[in-house]
Every structure is written in structure tokens, then in C-alpha cells.
């Protein structure tokens, strides 16, 4: 009997030790994974990349997109760096994405982390160009507009707005980024002549707000009108046999007669 309880005790201790080892190791591992996965929210992914969470799951870190890129735009993140380990990214200020119409990187991806649903490279949304209005030469009043001229979707992704000034000065030409057309290729960031780029690409989640569905912009043509603002009509009074309510004498001319 005593022997049995010793072996049972042994078994329980062993089991507890094993569980403790597994739990410690597992937690440490999960911690590492979480650290790595949230390493850097600024990573720009190749065209067609799934949303960051799905991309993290699906990318097998093989680098075939990197090999297929004819401009050496794409790189694989090394370990221990700021970016999640082993996955492709690009830095537009160094080499932007030149928007190959045949999308070789997406075709090279074996897992679908770069989604084959992207048929037209102009539909890719790698990020969004953001202008630093304080340091943009055009917004300062100089004639620059290089980003607009270099933009592969010029007139759609980047448009110019003309603002005339006093007679002795030329008009200002403001570059404006339109998020519905900007692919985030980064050619503008590469071309920007300021010391630090005054236009740069950021992931959509870093810069884009969301208006919320309850706002109705009644003055835009696109806004769907969901309510008709008809003037209030009182329901017709139910016919009744009761005598009309007694009126205060002396007030009738105000209430009934025209003035």
C-alpha cells in the first residue's frame, strides 16, 4: 500500500513537473511570437498582400517574390530587426514598387499570401501616400509638383489644385492624394526632392480614419438618400359627435379670423 502511494506521488510530481515545463516553455514561445508579430506596424507589403494578420499567417517566408522582383524592390526582413521575421517588405525611399503590369511577385507567391485576386496592378493598395503640408515645396509656394509628375496614376492618385495669389506671385499648385486611386507604390516618395521625403507611404491603418455610417452628406451626389424629409402632416382628426370645445370669449378674432 505504502509502495503504491509512493509511486502515485512520483507520478503526480512528474506530471506536475512536465506540465510546468510545458507551460513555461509555451508561454515563452507565445511571448516571442507576439513580440515578433507586432514588431513594426509600418511594414509595407508587396502588391496583393492580405491584411497584416492574414499575411502573417499565410506567408511561408520563402522569398520567391523577392527573387521575382525585377527592380530589387522587395527584401526579406532579417531576424532581430524591426520588422516581423522573414517576410517581404519594401522601402519606397530606397526603391519603390514600379507597378509591373504582370505582377510577377504575386504570381511567384506559392501560398496566396499575395492574393491572386489582384488582377490589375493599379488596384493594389500597398499603402497610402501622405503629404507633410509643412514641408512640401508646393504647399510652401514653390513650383515643384514632382510627385504629381512622377505618379504613375497622375491625375487620379495625385491631383493638383490651383490657388491663385496676389498679382506679383504665381499661383500655388497643391498636390492632393486621392486614396481611392493611390496604390502606395512610393514612386512619389522616391522622387520627392526634400532632404527627408515630404510625401511618404504609410500603411492605411496608420493614416486613414473612418467616418462612421450614421453621417449623411446630403449635398454630395454619391450619398444615398435614405430619408425623405417631408413636412409633418398632422393625422386627420377622427370625426366625433362631441360638441366643439368651448372657446374663451373675446379671443375669437385672434384665433379664427384673418388678421
Amino acid at each position: 500500500m505504502a509502495e503504491q502511494s509512493v509511486s502515485r506521488r512520483d507520478f503526480l510530481v512528474k506530471a506536475a513537473q512536465g506540465t510546468a515545463m510545458a507551460a513555461t516553455g509555451g508561454l515563452l514561445w507565445v511571448y516571442l511570437l507576439r513580440q515578433e508579430a507586432r514588431a513594426h506596424p509600418f511594414a509595407l507589403r508587396p502588391p496583393g498582400a492580405l491584411t497584416e494578420k492574414d499575411f502573417n499567417a499565410a506567408c511561408i517566408k520563402c522569398g520567391q517574390c523577392v527573387v521575382s522582383c525585377p527592380y530589387d524592390t522587395l527584401k526579406l526582413a532579417g531576424s532581430g530587426g524591426d520588422l516581423p521575421i522573414g517576410m517581404p517588405y519594401f522601402e519606397p525611399r530606397k526603391i519603390p514598387c514600379y507597378l509591373c503590369p504582370d505582377i510577377p511577385c504575386m504570381k511567384a507567391c506559392p501560398t496566396g499570401a499575395l492574393s491572386p485576386e489582384l488582377k490589375n496592378i493599379n488596384d493594389s493598395r500597398m499603402g497610402l501616400a501622405v503629404i507633410d503640408l509643412e514641408n512640401c515645396l508646393s504647399w510652401k509656394g514653390l513650383r515643384c509638383e514632382i510627385c504629381h509628375r512622377e505618379c504613375p496614376l497622375k491625375g487620379k492618385a495625385i491631383t493638383l489644385e490651383m490657388h491663385p495669389r496676389q498679382l506679383s506671385k504665381h499661383a500655388m499648385f497643391y498636390p492632393i492624394v486621392n486614396s481611392d486611386a493611390c496604390t502606395g507604390c512610393g514612386i512619389c516618395e522616391k522622387a520627392c526632392p526634400t532632404t527627408e521625403a515630404a510625401i511618404r507611404i504609410l500603411p492605411h491603418s496608420m493614416v486613414q480614419g473612418k467616418i462612421g455610417e450614421h453621417y449623411r452628406l446630403g449635398w454630395t451626389f454619391e450619398t444615398e438618400i435614405t430619408q425623405d424629409f417631408k413636412p409633418y402632416e398632422a393625422p386627420a382628426p377622427a370625426p366625433s359627435d362631441a360638441p366643439p370645445p368651448k372657446k374663451a370669449p373675446g379671443m375669437d378674432y385672434l384665433n379664427e379670423g384673418g388678421l
Binding site: 527584401k75 532579417g78 531576424s79 532581430g80 530587426g81 516581423p84 521575421i85 522573414g86
Partner: peptide
Amino acid sequence: EWVSPVGMMHREIIFGIGF
């Protein structure tokens, strides 16, 4: 795959050195 030294070594020899 996110912590594999096998992957790290192979990737970094082929695609550039990290840590």
C-alpha cells in the same frame, strides 16, 4: 517558422544578413 534557426540561417545566407 517564426523562430526557426533553420529558416533564419537559410534565409539570411540567401537574402541578406540579420541577427
